Simulated scan of single mutants.
Amino acid sequence: MTSNQGRGEPVDILLVEDNPGDIRLTKEAFKEGRIANTLHVVKDGVDALDFLFQRNDYADAPRPALVLLDLNLPRKNGDEVLEELHADPTRRRIPVIVLTSSEAETDVVKSYELCASGYLTKPVDPFEFIEMLQELERFWLSIMRLPTDTSLD
């Protein structure tokens, strides 16, 4: 499955996740779902911001069409990543889906206050997790219209 506003072009997706098992399951979901989009992975909030702001080791990183963001990250947590993205006039337009194990209402509220585009709690069952990611991809990258790279500058 490919996307980009129905034009069939793959897009870049950034996964910000420090759990190796969740990284593996996400990659598996994309593979099983024949998701042709490119998945980039960083394991902490500092690297996520470097990737998104195209600095340091990520100076040549593509601007992702979608970010999947865990909240519980080393160095900078998901809330801090959301705060910095929201403060930037162009990068705040990149949709960020919080993908976390937390079911706490305070985390849900805070994520939306920090302008997350969505909040998903990771299912414990690996098959449900894969199914959820495939549905997320279908919705965000096949149904929703996302800003193009040129509209973000």
Rank of each mutant, 00 (worst) to 15 (best):
G8E: 04
G8D: 01
P10M: 07
I13P: 05
L14C: 07
L15R: 02
L15Q: 03
P20K: 04
I23T: 10
R24W: 12
L25R: 03
A29I: 07
F30K: 02
F30S: 02
K31S: 12
E32H: 10
R34P: 00
T38G: 03
L39T: 00
V41E: 11
G45Y: 09
V46C: 03
D47Q: 13
A48E: 05
L52H: 11
R55T: 03
D60W: 09
A61M: 03
R63Q: 12
A65C: 06
L66M: 01
V67A: 06
L71K: 09
N72Y: 08
P74A: 08
G78I: 01
E83P: 00
L85V: 10
P89A: 08
P89V: 12
T90H: 14
R91N: 12
P95V: 06
P95H: 09
V96P: 10
V98T: 06
S102V: 02
K110G: 01
S111T: 07
S111W: 01
E113Q: 15
C115Q: 12
C115D: 05
P126G: 09
E128H: 13
I130H: 09
E137A: 15
S142A: 10
I143L: 15
M144I: 11
M144Q: 15
T148E: 00
D149S: 11
S151G: 00
